[in-house]
Design a protein around this nucleic acid. Structure first.
Length: 465
RNA sequence: GGCGACGUCGCCAAGUGGCAAGGCAAGGGUCUGCAAAACCCUCAUCAUGGGUUCAAAUCCCAUCGUCGCCUCCA
């Protein structure tokens, strides 16, 4: 039984879907007006892992991720650049799709956009007005009436009165109540806009997700996800809108990932402490970012710095060490560590599932995998054959695959291999003659060029590093 | 100021009532011409102070500290 932490109840709960075997999952994507950063990557990775694991456990997952492509910031940026807002957002949508591919994140089942959901957004707002949960203001805005929603504040565990105490909300005379939020914003002169019953305008920030959810997944979904900075107001407002519109429970489970920390602070566009995904990938392998996420707990803040990244990279190397071929020395297929492999495979799978079932405890799952890596390496050292190693290595591939790790060996540029082999051959001759200085020079120089040489008992092996 | 989450070895981190996983780093060893890799060994009583319990890192209270949200935000 899978258990997951539900922000709504602040507890771990047994996972049960509305329809047997099918998971409807909606994850808030990005507002596309700039390069996405590694914090966005974290969120997408977290829910990619959730999806992959649910699929591993036999569910079919309908995974929807939206693009918010109509928004103040997009309009501002487009104005600065002197291009149409949708041209700007389309560029960044294409970029983000590429980022996700590069990060080995499975494509969502659907990726709706605000600009393409306008009729449904408008009819959604009309429905709320009809039911008395929203009202048009004199200036052409439409607001949601928070005081009409008894449950308002349930997700973020706060009361309307408490929030007003914060008093950072601008009092707008257009609103009946300071906490009321915009469903529809009247267009300013020259701004991109759509025709509506309330005049030219565009959607407020939260309504798009409610509408796209309804379009893509229906009235009730199983998992709604996103960063924990979205809990309030975004998700709170989504719940309010959707549940007031349908009269039904919206999402059964709410999952929120913690924030990525850079220098002890949340990485965010407004703080400016950003490392873009593109920039990251120019320096490190995608697996490193994923490993960093896996090593932590998705709900907790993630420490992102050179030290933790190095640790993640080394951890990957360690897992890969188990995938190397059998040692070339004499085999001993009957060693205890070799004959024990099948049982250990069984153990690691069980431990993996047990950890992952418990609210996607990836750090615990990795612990099990690392234990098995050691067991596999011990078997190799003891003389296991490739045929004996194969099932163990397949197990590692299977489990790390569920986590979305590629574990690709680095490769050179095609023809390099034969020249490297030649150098290794020459070096073997040199070593026979005990010309150690020359031998070490070749090894050191190759190392500088990204080729690691290791002298084993029965010969020398090399790999790109 | 209000609300929420959290504080486990040098770093990252699992564990939520029964003698503290794992990774990185560090030290010692096997192997090696020397290395590297792999393997073996060593390395924490869980922010602080109270309380509940036969038993607490795990439950309760207080204090200190960190982070997030309350304004755009994954």
């Amino acid at each position: 039984m899978i258990r997951l932490y539900n922000t709504l109840t602040r507890k771990k709960e047994d996972f049960q879907t509305h329809q047997p075997g099918l998971v409807k999952m909606y994850v808030c994507g990005v507002t596309v007006y700039n390069d996405a950063h590694v914090g966005h990557a974290m969120s997408s990775l977290v829910f990619d892992i959730v999806r992959r694991y649910l699929e591993y456990r036999g569910y079919s997952v309908k995974h929807v991720m939206n693009f918010t492509d109509v928004d103040d910031k997009i309009i501002n940026r487009a104005n600065q650049l002197g291009i149409p807002p949708l041209e700007l957002s389309n560029k960044y949508i294409a970029d983000y799709r590429q980022n996700l591919l590069d990060l080995n994140i499975l494509p969502a089942s659907a990726t709706p956009q605000v600009s393409k959901t306008m009729p449904q957004i408008i009819s959604f707002i009309e429905g709320l007005i009809e039911r008395g949960y929203a009202y048009p203001a004199a200036n052409g805005d439409v607001y949601f009436r928070v005081t009409k929603d008894e449950d308002y504040g349930r997700l973020s565990a706060r009361k309307i009165e408490d929030m007003q105490a914060g008093a950072r909300i601008e009092i707008e005379e257009q609103k009946e109540h300071p906490m009321d939020f915009a469903l529809w914003k009247a267009a300013k002169p020259g701004e991109i806009s759509w025709q509506s019953p309330w005049g030219q305008g565009r959607p407020g920030w939260h309504i798009e997700c409610s509408a796209m959810n309804l379009v893509e997944l229906g009235e009730q979904i199983d998992i709604h996800g996103g960063g924990n900075d979205l809990i309030f107001p975004h998700h709170e407002n989504e719940i309010a809108q959707t549940e007031c519109y349908t009269g039904k429970e919206f999402s059964r489970y709410w999952m929120h990932n913690g924030m990525l920390q850079l220098g002890g602070e949340k990485m965010s566009k407004s703080l400016g402490n950003i490392i873009s995904i593109k920039e990251f990938l120019s320096k490190r392998d995608a697996d490193v970012m994923r490993m960093l996420v896996l090593n932590g707990s998705y709900r907790a803040p993630l420490v992102f710095n050179e030290e933790t990244l190095d640790g993640a990279e080394k951890g990957l190397e360690r897992i890969k060490s188990a995938l190397r071929p059998a040692s070339t020395k004499e085999t001993d297929s009957n060693a205890e560590s070799v004959t024990g492999l099948p049982a250990a495979m069984d153990t690691v799978k069980k431990a993996f599932i047990e950890a992952m079932d418990d609210d996607f405890n990836t750090a615990g799952a990795l612990g099990a995998i690392f234990d098995f890596v050691r067991i596999t390496n011990t078997a190799r050292d003891a003389g296991a054959t490739d045929a004996q190693l194969k099932p163990a290595q397949d197990t590692i591939r299977e489990l790390t695959g569920v986590l979305g790790l590629r574990l690709a060996e680095k490769t050179g540029s095609g023809d390099a291999d034969k020249f490297i082999n030649l150098l290794v051959e020459v070096r073997a001759e040199v070593r026979k003659q005990k010309l150690w200085a020359m031998s070490d020079l070749i090894r050191d120089r190759l190392k500088e060029l990204g080729v690691t040489i290791e002298d084993g008992k029965q010969g020398t092996t090399w790999r790109f590093s």
